[in-house]
């Protein structure tokens, strides 16, 4: 019989951060994947919410597109607050 599918696991910690990828596991169905994720990835109070996604269902950017995808953002320095110099005496900005 075929191997169980691979699932990617995302956990939201109790600190209010967004779900974060923590690893993968194999499971026959979604319910099992959530149970396994709980047992494998939250043994030390790591989380309060679990997402599982079949690895095969994830669309990813390709490394060949790295330059067109990410380099253009580098030149937009004015998106960052540190780009603007504050005059002396300005507070709360």
């Amino acid at each position: 019989m075929k191997e169980w599918p691979l699932w990617e696991v995302f956990i939201r910690s109790s600190h209010g951060l967004a779900h974060k990828h923590v690893g993968s596991l194999r499971a026959a169905d979604a319910e099992m994947a959530i149970g396994n994720a709980r047992d494998v990835y939250t043994r030390r109070n790591e989380g309060v919410s679990i997402w599982v996604v079949r690895a095969a269902d994830i669309a990813a950017s390709s490394p060949g597109d790295k330059e067109p995808l990410f380099d253009p953002a580098r030149s937009k320095v004015y998106r960052h607050p540190t780009f603007f110099e504050l005059i002396d005496g300005v507070k709360h900005m």
């Binding site: 019989m1 075929k2 169980w4 026959a28 169905d29 099992m32």
Partner: peptide
């Protein structure tokens, strides 16, 4: 465990 893994896959 083979029949167990097969059963879970068949159920899924």
């Amino acid at each position: 465990g083979a029949w167990v893994r097969d059963a879970a896959a068949a159920h899924a």
